[in-house]
Design a protein around this nucleic acid. Sequence first.
DNA 1: CCTCGATCTAGACACTGTCAAGTTAATTGA
DNA 2: TCAATTAACTTGACAGTGTCTAGATCGAGG
Lengths: 200, 200
Amino acid sequence: MTASEKPSHHHGNLRSALINAGVQLLSEGGLEALTLRKAASVAGVSHAAPAHHFASLTNLRSAIAAAGFDIFDASMKREIKKVSSSNPSAVIRAACRGYIIFAIDNPALFSLMFGGTELIREEPPLGASSSLAYETLTQICLPYSRDAKSLENMRMLVWSLVHGFTSLMLAQQKNFPSADDAIRQFEEMLPDFSKLQNGE
Amino acid sequence: MTASEKPSHHHGNLRSALINAGVQLLSEGGLEALTLRKAASVAGVSHAAPAHHFASLTNLRSAIAAAGFDIFDASMKREIKKVSSSNPSAVIRAACRGYIIFAIDNPALFSLMFGGTELIREEPPLGASSSLAYETLTQICLPYSRDAKSLENMRMLVWSLVHGFTSLMLAQQKNFPSADDAIRQFEEMLPDFSKLQNGE
DNA sequence: CCTCGATCTAGACACTGTCAAGTTAATTGA
DNA sequence: TCAATTAACTTGACAGTGTCTAGATCGAGG
């Protein structure tokens, strides 16, 4: 949509425009700043236009959360790529760094995804994107699993640890630490954790 | 407030009545069912009455969250009392059971307390109650701490683990498991965790 | 008894999600 | 090519929300 295009009655790509507007509203004003009408306004359409793409606010929130899971998964994968994949423990720690970085960079989005807001989790947009991140978290635990049950336990252990740490960090401090400080604190807590790996 | 008392213009104890009404609304309709006007209605007063006790919805939410932290702390302490206090690891596991039980019994309250809703965390009502629970979590880690730093790491480790597990459980399943099932799943994940205790 | 302050009511305003009806534009089909 | 159909959007309305202002009522202290 360049400036040379004359404004059309049809927006063209309103659905993704509303999602982008929602992400922006979240990052600027927190959870409660995300409203259908504001998103419509930012996207440059009337207040009722979103209804044709999202049946309700819950649907828009779910689509935004799905976009959040994509960013989230990308953040973990980016940090994983930075380290040698031959060291399983380093890979897990890298994923955790990506986890924390995402939350610090997108606290309101993180809250929307995990904070208890009603979302439609099963259907395609959100279900697929969250499964992606789920899969990444499973992959990094594979080296530590002997069977299906130990994999599930390890995955839940790692996920619980990093998710709990991140959630509590966001809930406690009004002014979050920098991502570097948060990661430092997490890894300082973690050394004991490495004992339960079968060897690093 | 018995039925024999004639209704007075003054409610008498509107502040706590609104908090109780809020807890009820949360448990019946989730996060978004908690509104000032509904709480006022449940308490039997006009829509503007709450303003004299809570300057804004955020203040009411904070007071309700404070009440939640009291229940939360009581739930942990109740489980701790059930076990012999001579076994530090058993005490920690008991506290975690209380943590999970509270979340299963009060999912919306849990979301309000930790889910990213804006709250006034420093001031007396919420600040004091959350410090109480914080203190309980610190106490159960004392047997495993050699110094201030190791205590902080252990506390954060335990808290992150149980909080992350609980949050993810509430976020993932629309129909939560029973408290018993959730605790079983948590403790099944935990055995590896016991390795990092200096001895059970 | 009377005053005064605390408590609550009534009304209003802007904002919200959602619905219904109408308008515009793109696409399809003959 | 051009009319008809359908998708996309606008306008208007409604109930519900937080919050403000003004006024009414009650309880306690002088």
